[in-house]
């Protein structure tokens, strides 16, 4: 022992008390830097939309002032009707996504071995990884009059006339939204099901609780925060992704995102900002309501 302990390894050596105290002070700020960045270039710009929305519109830009003209322009025109109807169709998409997607999340959690679960969920990342816009554009040849769906159905003899309502219509937008956002309900449902321990299923079987009661009385209340977060995501994106109505929609299919980008193209920046502010208000109030109802911080438990 003696020869090996002839000199102590590290520890116990005196440290210079004054060795770069500025470095010690700097380190916490390195960890905060991303948050500062997010405040500067995300939180502040989003909050500033409210300020810019009341600026006066000029020919090519805007100037400081206070006018509610943009809001008037939004609320007392066809824009409001369009916005509200896009809300309706967005809600329909949320429901369809939930009905189609959530059972998958339950199935994966319940019936697939723990180790394989993540890999199965990864399958849903695959379509999500192809540019959303390309996927939406690619729906055109699929849903078109002479597209994949119609020609397949006609060849099978199920229909005689091509279905034209599939594209350039509200139906088209809903199909686009469902195909774009379905993976998200699977992801959020999968995370939400973390709150439902696997033994619950055994307890329910033991008590003779049927699948529907089990879903309504046990799974839904436990998974509610995650389901809600996923639904808000789909709803808000249905309102905000301009390309969906732009590419797939017909007359009257205009959502908030499209209003904003059209306003930008028309150089009506205050209007674009008003729409953004309205969207942010919608989003925040939805999240607030969700938080009051379900305590959304619960979703984060698996992350912390």
């Amino acid at each position: 022992m003696a020869d090996l302990s002839s000199h102590a390894v590290s520890g116990g050596h005196p440290v210079d008390a004054d060795k770069a105290p500025w470095r010690a002070k700097l380190v916490p700020w390195v960890f905060r830097a991303p948050l500062i960045f997010m405040v500067m270039f995300f939180a502040i710009p989003m909050a500033m939309t409210v300020v810019f929305s009341v600026f006066e519109r000029t020919m090519f830009w805007m100037e400081p002032g206070f006018t509610l003209f943009s809001y008037e322009n939004f609320f007392f025109s066809a824009r409001l009707t369009n916005f509200l109807s896009s809300m309706k169709y967005s809600l329909i998409s949320v429901v369809i996504c939930f009905v189609l997607g959530f059972p998958i999340a339950v199935f994966v959690r319940k019936s697939i071995p723990q180790v394989a679960q993540h890999r199965v969920v990864l399958l849903f990342i695959l379509p999500f990884m192809v540019s959303e816009i390309i996927r939406v554009f690619a729906l055109r040849p699929v849903l078109q009059r002479n597209g994949l769906v119609n020609s397949t159905l006609m060849e099978l003899g199920l229909i005689d006339e091509p279905i034209t309502a599939l594209l350039y219509s509200h139906t088209g937008v809903v199909i686009g939204e469902v195909l774009s956002f379905l993976p998200f309900i699977v992801f959020s449902g999968f995370l939400a099901m973390e709150a439902v321990p696997k033994y619950i299923f055994e307890v329910c079987d033991d008590l003779g609780v049927g699948p529907w009661r089990r879903f309504k009385d046990v799974i839904l209340p436990l998974a509610a925060p995650g389901i809600f977060a996923g639904s808000v995501f789909i709803f808000v994106n249905g309102l905000g992704v301009a390309l969906l109505p732009n590419i797939l929609g017909g007359a009257g299919a205009v959502n908030a995102g499209l209003i904003a980008t059209q306003a930008i193209t028309a150089l009506d920046f205050p209007l674009a900002m008003a729409v953004s502010a309205i969207m942010m208000a919608t989003l925040l109030s939805l999240l607030w309501i969700g938080h009051k109802l379900f305590d959304l911080t619960k979703i984060l438990t698996p992350l912390s």
Binding site: F41, F42, A260, I264, S276, L283
Partner: peptide, 20 residues
Amino acid sequence: LLLSPLFVPPDILGSALLVF
């Protein structure tokens, strides 16, 4: 702060940042 960009639709985030 870190997750909310997920919830802000692309056109809204783009427009807000553009004007900003």
